[in-house]
Protein backbone atom coordinates (compact mmCIF):
# COMPACT_ATOMS: atom_id res chain seq x y z
CA UNK A 1 0.00 0.00 0.00
CA UNK A 2 1.11 3.62 -0.52
CA UNK A 3 1.56 4.67 3.11
CA UNK A 4 2.56 2.26 5.84
CA UNK A 5 2.84 2.49 9.60
CA UNK A 6 3.94 -0.24 12.03
CA UNK A 7 3.66 -0.02 15.80
CA UNK A 8 3.75 -2.19 18.90
CA UNK A 9 1.24 -1.63 21.69
CA UNK A 10 2.12 -3.82 24.66
CA UNK A 11 2.50 -7.36 23.31
CA UNK A 12 0.59 -6.70 20.06
CA UNK A 13 2.13 -5.51 16.77
CA UNK A 14 0.07 -3.78 14.08
CA UNK A 15 0.74 -3.01 10.44
CA UNK A 16 -1.44 -0.26 9.01
CA UNK A 17 -1.57 0.48 5.31
CA UNK A 18 -3.35 3.53 3.96
CA UNK A 19 -4.27 4.84 0.55
CA UNK A 20 -3.77 8.38 1.91
CA UNK A 21 -0.86 10.10 3.62
CA UNK A 22 -2.83 12.03 6.27
CA UNK A 23 -4.01 9.17 8.52
CA UNK A 24 -0.50 7.69 8.62
CA UNK A 25 1.03 11.05 9.53
CA UNK A 26 -1.49 11.45 12.34
CA UNK A 27 -0.67 7.95 13.56
CA UNK A 28 3.06 8.77 13.55
CA UNK A 29 2.41 11.80 15.76
CA UNK A 30 0.04 10.06 18.13
CA UNK A 31 2.28 7.02 18.53
CA UNK A 32 5.64 8.84 18.46
CA UNK A 33 6.61 7.46 21.92
CA UNK A 34 5.60 3.86 21.13
CA UNK A 35 8.06 1.28 19.75
CA UNK A 36 8.01 1.15 15.94
CA UNK A 37 7.47 -2.24 14.36
CA UNK A 38 8.53 -3.28 10.88
CA UNK A 39 8.69 -7.06 11.32
CA UNK A 40 5.87 -9.57 11.12
CA UNK A 41 2.71 -7.99 12.59
CA UNK A 42 0.04 -9.72 14.63
CA UNK A 43 -2.63 -7.83 12.71
CA UNK A 44 -2.95 -5.96 9.43
CA UNK A 45 -5.30 -3.00 8.96
CA UNK A 46 -6.00 -1.41 5.57
CA UNK A 47 -7.54 2.00 4.98
CA UNK A 48 -8.84 1.88 1.44
CA UNK A 49 -10.89 3.82 -1.05
CA UNK A 50 -14.00 2.04 -2.31
CA UNK A 51 -12.79 2.59 -5.90
CA UNK A 52 -9.38 3.83 -7.07
CA UNK A 53 -10.76 7.19 -8.21
CA UNK A 54 -12.51 7.67 -4.88
CA UNK A 55 -9.09 8.32 -3.38
CA UNK A 56 -9.54 11.89 -4.64
CA UNK A 57 -13.26 12.43 -5.21
CA UNK A 58 -15.28 12.70 -1.97
CA UNK A 59 -12.74 10.37 -0.34
CA UNK A 60 -14.15 8.00 2.24
CA UNK A 61 -12.10 5.56 4.25
CA UNK A 62 -13.09 1.91 4.20
CA UNK A 63 -11.73 -0.17 7.07
CA UNK A 64 -10.36 -3.55 6.02
CA UNK A 65 -7.87 -6.02 7.40
CA UNK A 66 -7.33 -9.57 8.56
CA UNK A 67 -10.72 -9.48 10.26
CA UNK A 68 -13.64 -7.43 8.99
CA UNK A 69 -17.33 -6.99 9.54
CA UNK A 70 -19.28 -6.68 6.32
CA UNK A 71 -21.41 -3.67 7.24
CA UNK A 72 -18.74 -1.37 8.72
CA UNK A 73 -19.67 2.09 7.43
CA UNK A 74 -16.84 4.13 5.86
CA UNK A 75 -15.64 7.37 7.46
CA UNK A 76 -14.74 10.70 5.84
CA UNK A 77 -11.01 11.21 5.24
CA UNK A 78 -10.91 13.89 7.96
CA UNK A 79 -11.60 11.08 10.43
CA UNK A 80 -8.94 8.77 8.98
CA UNK A 81 -7.18 8.50 12.33
CA UNK A 82 -10.41 7.31 13.92
CA UNK A 83 -10.78 4.78 11.10
CA UNK A 84 -7.29 3.43 11.86
CA UNK A 85 -8.08 3.16 15.56
CA UNK A 86 -11.38 1.42 14.82
CA UNK A 87 -9.59 -0.95 12.47
CA UNK A 88 -7.08 -1.85 15.18
CA UNK A 89 -9.90 -2.37 17.70
CA UNK A 90 -11.71 -4.59 15.23
CA UNK A 91 -8.66 -6.80 14.73
CA UNK A 92 -8.30 -7.23 18.47
CA UNK A 93 -12.00 -7.85 19.06
CA UNK A 94 -12.33 -10.43 16.28
CA UNK A 95 -8.83 -11.89 16.00
CA UNK A 96 -7.13 -11.90 19.40
CA UNK A 97 -6.49 -15.48 20.52
CA UNK A 98 -3.38 -15.28 22.73
CA UNK A 99 -5.09 -13.47 25.59
CA UNK A 100 -8.58 -13.51 27.00
CA UNK A 101 -9.85 -10.13 25.90
CA UNK A 102 -12.16 -8.20 28.22
CA UNK A 103 -13.88 -5.00 27.20
CA UNK A 104 -12.60 -3.15 30.26
CA UNK A 105 -10.03 -0.69 31.57
CA UNK A 106 -7.19 -1.45 33.97
CA UNK A 107 -4.80 0.49 36.18
CA UNK A 108 -1.86 -0.76 38.24
CA UNK A 109 0.09 0.06 41.37
CA UNK A 110 2.78 -2.05 43.11
CA UNK A 111 2.41 -4.82 40.54
CA UNK A 112 -1.30 -5.27 41.33
CA UNK A 113 -4.04 -4.43 38.85
CA UNK A 114 -7.61 -3.13 39.12
CA UNK A 115 -9.92 -4.14 36.29
CA UNK A 116 -12.90 -1.89 35.61
CA UNK A 117 -15.67 -3.04 33.34
CA UNK A 118 -19.16 -1.92 32.49
CA UNK A 119 -21.30 -0.78 29.61
CA UNK A 120 -20.06 1.98 27.30
CA UNK A 121 -20.79 5.30 28.98
CA UNK A 122 -20.12 3.95 32.49
CA UNK A 123 -17.03 6.14 32.45
CA UNK A 124 -14.36 3.48 32.78
CA UNK A 125 -12.04 4.95 30.09
CA UNK A 126 -12.20 8.41 31.57
CA UNK A 127 -11.76 7.11 35.10
CA UNK A 128 -8.74 5.01 34.13
CA UNK A 129 -7.15 7.98 32.35
CA UNK A 130 -7.75 10.34 35.26
CA UNK A 131 -6.43 7.92 37.86
CA UNK A 132 -3.01 8.48 36.26
CA UNK A 133 -2.95 11.89 37.95
CA UNK A 134 -3.23 10.08 41.31
CA UNK A 135 -0.24 7.80 40.87
CA UNK A 136 -1.77 4.86 39.02
CA UNK A 137 -0.22 3.35 35.90
CA UNK A 138 -2.71 3.09 33.02
CA UNK A 139 -2.63 -0.45 31.60
CA UNK A 140 -5.62 -0.36 29.27
CA UNK A 141 -8.63 1.80 28.60
CA UNK A 142 -10.58 -0.43 26.20
CA UNK A 143 -9.23 -4.00 26.08
CA UNK A 144 -7.80 -5.81 29.09
CA UNK A 145 -5.63 -8.80 28.15
CA UNK A 146 -5.59 -11.76 30.55
CA UNK A 147 -2.93 -14.38 29.88
CA UNK A 148 -4.62 -17.80 30.23
CA UNK A 149 -1.54 -19.70 31.45
CA UNK A 150 -0.68 -17.29 34.30
CA UNK A 151 -3.83 -15.28 34.95
CA UNK A 152 -1.74 -12.08 34.68
CA UNK A 153 -3.05 -8.89 33.09
CA UNK A 154 -0.89 -7.66 30.20
CA UNK A 155 -0.87 -3.97 29.30
CA UNK A 156 -2.45 -2.70 26.13
CA UNK A 157 -1.96 1.05 26.59
CA UNK A 158 -3.58 2.45 23.46
CA UNK A 159 -4.27 6.15 23.20
CA UNK A 160 -7.47 6.73 25.20
CA UNK A 161 -10.42 7.74 23.06
CA UNK A 162 -12.20 10.48 25.02
CA UNK A 163 -15.52 11.93 24.02
CA UNK A 164 -17.25 15.28 24.39
CA UNK A 165 -17.16 16.69 27.97
CA UNK A 166 -14.56 14.13 29.11
CA UNK A 167 -11.99 15.81 26.81
CA UNK A 168 -11.93 19.07 28.77
CA UNK A 169 -12.02 17.28 32.13
CA UNK A 170 -8.94 15.25 31.18
CA UNK A 171 -7.13 18.29 29.77
CA UNK A 172 -7.53 20.04 33.10
CA UNK A 173 -6.43 16.98 35.12
CA UNK A 174 -3.48 16.04 32.87
CA UNK A 175 -2.09 19.37 31.61
CA UNK A 176 1.17 17.89 30.22
CA UNK A 177 -0.40 15.08 28.20
CA UNK A 178 0.11 14.55 24.47
CA UNK A 179 -3.13 14.62 22.43
CA UNK A 180 -4.26 13.67 18.95
CA UNK A 181 -6.27 16.06 16.78
CA UNK A 182 -9.80 17.01 17.85
CA UNK A 183 -12.33 15.30 15.57
CA UNK A 184 -15.78 16.88 15.72
CA UNK A 185 -18.92 15.39 14.20
CA UNK A 186 -17.89 11.76 14.38
CA UNK A 187 -20.68 9.18 14.79
CA UNK A 188 -20.07 9.50 18.55
CA UNK A 189 -19.74 13.30 18.74
CA UNK A 190 -16.38 14.99 19.39
CA UNK A 191 -13.48 12.57 19.90
CA UNK A 192 -9.90 13.22 20.90
CA UNK A 193 -7.17 10.71 21.69
CA UNK A 194 -5.11 11.08 24.86
CA UNK A 195 -1.68 9.44 24.86
CA UNK A 196 -1.09 7.54 28.13
CA UNK A 197 1.59 8.94 30.43
CA UNK A 198 5.27 8.03 30.56
CA UNK A 199 4.73 5.35 33.23
CA UNK A 200 2.17 3.58 31.04
CA UNK A 201 4.44 3.55 27.99
CA UNK A 202 7.56 2.57 29.95
CA UNK A 203 5.62 -0.32 31.51
CA UNK A 204 3.96 -1.41 28.27
CA UNK A 205 5.54 -4.88 28.52
CA UNK A 206 5.16 -5.31 32.30
CA UNK A 207 2.20 -7.46 33.35
CA UNK A 208 0.46 -7.27 36.74
CA UNK A 209 -1.55 -9.54 38.98
CA UNK A 210 -5.29 -8.71 39.02
CA UNK A 211 -6.59 -8.19 42.56
CA UNK A 212 -9.73 -6.08 42.23
CA UNK A 213 -12.60 -6.28 39.74
CA UNK A 214 -14.89 -3.28 39.64
CA UNK A 215 -18.18 -2.54 37.91
CA UNK A 216 -18.21 1.27 38.09
CA UNK A 217 -21.12 3.58 37.29
CA UNK A 218 -20.52 7.30 36.88
CA UNK A 219 -22.89 10.08 37.92
CA UNK A 220 -24.42 8.59 41.08
CA UNK A 221 -23.75 9.23 44.78
CA UNK A 222 -20.79 7.22 46.11
CA UNK A 223 -21.82 3.71 47.00
CA UNK A 224 -20.56 0.17 46.73
CA UNK A 225 -21.90 -3.37 46.91
CA UNK A 226 -20.20 -6.75 46.67
CA UNK A 227 -20.68 -8.82 43.48
CA UNK A 228 -20.87 -12.62 43.54
CA UNK A 229 -18.40 -14.68 41.53
CA UNK A 230 -21.23 -16.06 39.39
CA UNK A 231 -22.58 -12.63 38.47
CA UNK A 232 -19.05 -11.41 37.73
CA UNK A 233 -18.43 -14.45 35.53
CA UNK A 234 -21.61 -13.89 33.52
CA UNK A 235 -20.94 -10.18 33.09
CA UNK A 236 -17.37 -10.79 31.96
CA UNK A 237 -18.35 -13.44 29.42
CA UNK A 238 -20.61 -10.76 27.97
CA UNK A 239 -17.74 -8.25 28.07
CA UNK A 240 -15.39 -10.60 26.20
CA UNK A 241 -15.24 -10.92 22.44
CA UNK A 242 -13.11 -14.06 22.42
CA UNK A 243 -14.26 -16.06 25.44
CA UNK A 244 -15.93 -18.68 23.24
CA UNK A 245 -13.08 -18.71 20.72
CA UNK A 246 -10.53 -19.56 23.41
CA UNK A 247 -12.43 -22.69 24.48
CA UNK A 248 -11.26 -24.26 27.71
CA UNK A 249 -8.39 -21.77 28.09
CA UNK A 250 -10.98 -19.00 28.33
CA UNK A 251 -13.06 -20.92 30.86
CA UNK A 252 -10.03 -21.60 33.05
CA UNK A 253 -8.78 -18.01 32.87
CA UNK A 254 -12.15 -16.45 33.62
CA UNK A 255 -13.26 -18.75 36.45
CA UNK A 256 -9.84 -18.24 38.04
CA UNK A 257 -10.02 -14.48 37.65
CA UNK A 258 -13.45 -14.05 39.24
CA UNK A 259 -12.57 -16.45 42.05
CA UNK A 260 -9.23 -14.85 42.94
CA UNK A 261 -10.11 -11.14 42.97
CA UNK A 262 -12.18 -8.88 45.23
CA UNK A 263 -15.36 -7.95 43.33
CA UNK A 264 -17.48 -4.85 43.79
CA UNK A 265 -19.92 -2.58 41.99
CA UNK A 266 -19.25 1.08 42.71
CA UNK A 267 -21.22 4.24 41.98
CA UNK A 268 -19.25 7.48 41.93
CA UNK A 269 -20.02 11.16 41.35
CA UNK A 270 -16.42 12.23 40.50
CA UNK A 271 -12.89 10.90 40.15
CA UNK A 272 -11.89 11.75 43.72
CA UNK A 273 -14.69 9.67 45.23
CA UNK A 274 -13.91 6.80 42.85
CA UNK A 275 -10.25 6.90 43.84
CA UNK A 276 -11.19 6.81 47.52
CA UNK A 277 -13.51 3.83 46.98
CA UNK A 278 -10.80 2.00 45.05
CA UNK A 279 -8.09 2.73 47.59
CA UNK A 280 -10.37 1.47 50.37
CA UNK A 281 -11.09 -1.82 48.57
CA UNK A 282 -7.43 -2.20 47.55
Amino acid sequence: MRHVFGVRVGPVAFRIGSAWRAPVEQLRTLYRDYPAHDGVPDFTVRLEAARPWRRFVRPSVHIRGDFVIPDAAPLPLAQGLLAAEMGMNLQMALGQRRFLLLHAAAVERDGRAVIMTGESGAGKSTLAALLQARGWRLMADEFVLVEPATGLVHPFPRPVSLKNAAIDVARAALPDALWGPLMRDTPKGAIRHLVPGAAALAGAETPAEPVLLLFPRYGLPAEQRPVGAGEAFVRLTQASTNYVGLGERGFTALTRLVTDVTRAAIDYPDTDSAAELIEALW
Binding site: A13, G39, V40, D42, R97, R98, L246, G247, R249
Partner: peptide, 11 residues
Protein backbone atom coordinates in the same frame (compact mmCIF):
# COMPACT_ATOMS: atom_id res chain seq x y z
CA UNK B 1 6.52 -13.78 16.15
CA UNK B 2 5.59 -16.12 13.34
CA UNK B 3 5.64 -19.10 15.69
CA UNK B 4 3.40 -17.26 18.18
CA UNK B 5 0.92 -16.30 15.46
CA UNK B 6 0.77 -19.81 14.08
CA UNK B 7 0.37 -21.18 17.58
CA UNK B 8 -2.72 -18.96 17.98
CA UNK B 9 -4.00 -20.09 14.60
CA UNK B 10 -3.63 -23.72 15.54
CA UNK B 11 -5.57 -23.19 18.77
Amino acid sequence: RVAALLHDAQA
